[in-house]
Simulated scan of single mutants.
Amino acid sequence: MLKLNNSLSSETAVNQYAELYMAGRCISTPFFSNVLQAWKQRNHPNMLFVTFEEMKQDLRGVINRVAAHLGKQPTEKQLEQLERHLSFESMKDNQWVNKENMGYRKTDSSGERIAFMRKGQTGDWKNHLSTEVAQKMDVWMEENLGGTGLELVTELPKK
């Protein structure tokens, strides 16, 4: 049984967490059965499937898609306000998004606060996992997504 050991280095802990996550032994797992349940409903008129990566690439476009889906036509001023409010920079400073209202206060070994919302970078996980675990994750994604039509974007092109 794989168990997370909090006394190990952060790199080891991240690799262990990834293994537990792939095994479906963390909060919000099993990941793919949850995501694919929504993906199968993507064409239902009451469903709009949006990804973080789409928001990172074109937040204004996603806001417009959501507004159209809801039958709304926001003004330019409202679009600008929404774009500012929904930006990652705004979200990472929001106590509600960071679960601070629920008592989430995680610190690293030096006592430095670790925010729930970190960098907002697609593909950053590859900078924290060992090559072996990253390869396992690639296989895990392929095994779970093969034939579904859903493709996860794990890295956005550099601007």
Rank of each mutant, 00 (worst) to 15 (best):
G111Q: 02
H85T: 11
Q95S: 15
L86N: 02
L82C: 06
V97I: 13
H128R: 06
N98Q: 11
M102A: 15
T107H: 09
L82K: 01
K119F: 07
N98I: 11
K119R: 07
A115H: 12
L79W: 00
S110G: 08
M117N: 06
D124S: 04
D108C: 06
K92F: 05
H85G: 06
V97W: 03
S90D: 08
K126T: 03
K106G: 02
R105V: 08
D108R: 02
S109P: 04
T122E: 10
S90Q: 13
Y104T: 00
D124A: 07
Q121T: 10
I114F: 00
E132P: 02
T131W: 03
Q95T: 14
T131K: 07
W96N: 07
T122N: 15
H85M: 14
L79I: 13
R113H: 07
R105D: 03
Q121G: 08
S87Q: 05
E112S: 12
Q121V: 13
L82Q: 08
Q121M: 15
G103Y: 13
K77S: 09
E80H: 14
F116Q: 02
M117L: 10
F88T: 12
G120A: 02
K92L: 10
F88W: 01
S87M: 08
G103S: 13
F88L: 04
N127P: 00
E100I: 06
R113S: 03
Q78L: 07
N98R: 11
Q81V: 09
T131Q: 08
